[in-house]
């Protein structure tokens, strides 16, 4: 991802009753990427989003969304940004279609255009058949889907989604993630907050992990994964039928291997590159039955846990 930076915060700070919720936060979000805002509960994710939308005034620092300051030109930012709040709510006495129509009217979208988009979006989020049912009869998950449609009704340049998959069934989560993954193609930059790490890993290009209002780490997923796991090394795990002390020496002498540890039948190898072929050959030549071998892939869990263990 090398689009230009469209959302940026500089030393953004927010206090609530003397408690610093967001502490000199610096974030950089590029155009048409999906940015995951991660962090434990109370890390300041929602507050950050509210400040980027101009719904909350920062105590100090500044933010820029597509060249506009949410503090000074909130209306310009709100014209570009779609927002799905954490506990999304609708007018229970209105139908799904009427609820969206109201928001469309607030955005000065013409009736015909709004009708077309509403029909389209309700189909995409999978609640097309209940479009004319009052929202009071909706389940939590249906409201969440309607909320996503609501955030996208104005064809936003940036969508802020606060826990977009909360309250959804597994199928709904998959559909929603697919939908989010497609947004950059339609020209929308996505900022989503979540603690569902695997979901974030599936759709996000870059992440920022917050803790106690500070950025712990920020960057693209690939790069962070490598850094998190043993300083950019490849980690290969070899399982044999029985331990063989000689094998450790042999593997150790292979070019590119940095470190070998034995744990019973397991050999844990740190290497500069993917040496699976060479290692397999060495194991077979040493007459040790090889059971399995795998290269450890980083997961966001590893990154996340690593930075929170160090805390």
């Amino acid at each position: 991802m090398d689009g230009k930076i469209v959302i940026e915060t500089k030393e953004l700070t927010k206090n609530y009753d003397g408690v610093t919720v967001v502490d000199r936060l610096n974030l950089h979000i590029r155009e048409k990427e999906i940015f995951g805002l991660l962090g434990p509960n109370g890390a300041g994710k929602t507050t950050t989003i509210l400040m980027l939308l101009g719904l909350t005034e920062p105590a100090s620092g500044s933010a820029w969304v597509f060249g506009y300051s949410p503090t000074r030109e909130p209306l310009k930012v709100k014209r570009l940004a779609g927002y799905l709040p954490e506990n999304v709510g609708f007018y229970n006495n209105l139908t799904a279609r009427e609820n969206l129509m109201f928001i469309a009217e607030l955005n000065n979208i013409s009736r015909a255009e709004a009708n077309r988009r509403i029909g389209e979006l309700l189909e995409i989020v999978g609640i097309g058949e209940v479009a004319n049912l009052t929202v009071g009869k909706f389940s939590r998950g249906m409201k969440q889907r309607l909320g996503i449609a609501d955030a996208l009704i104005k064809n936003p340049k940036v969508a802020f989604l606060d826990e977009p998959t909360a309250g959804l069934d597994p199928e709904g989560i998959n559909q929603t993630l697919d939908l989010i993954a497609n947004l950059p193609q339609m020209g929308t930059t996505v900022v989503l907050s979540s603690h569902q790490l695997y979901q974030v890993q599936r759709v996000c290009h870059s992440i920022g992990i917050l803790s106690k209002g500070k950025t712990v780490i920020e960057g693209s997923l690939d790069q962070l994964g490598r850094e998190a796991l043993a300083g950019g090394n490849y980690r290969i795990e070899v399982e044999t039928a029985q331990p063989n002390p000689q094998l450790i020496d042999i593997v150790n002498k292979l070019p590119g291997v940095r470190k070998v540890e034995a744990e019973g039948n397991l050999l844990l190898i740190n290497a500069d590159s993917d040496l699976r072929a060479e290692i397999a050959k060495a194991v077979v030549q040493s007459n040790t039955p090889l059971i399995q071998m795998k290269i450890q892939e980083f997961s966001l869990d590893d990154i996340y846990m690593k930075y929170f263990k160090e805390d």
Binding site: L53, L55, L75, K76, K78, R79, A81, Y83, P85, N87, V88, G89, F90, Y91, N92, I103, L106, N107, D150
Partner: peptide
């Protein structure tokens, strides 16, 4: 309390 206020205020209205 029904969560509609934050949705309305995130629209381009004063």
């Amino acid at each position: 309390s029904s969560g509609t206020l934050s949705r309305i205020l995130s629209q381009p209205v004063y």
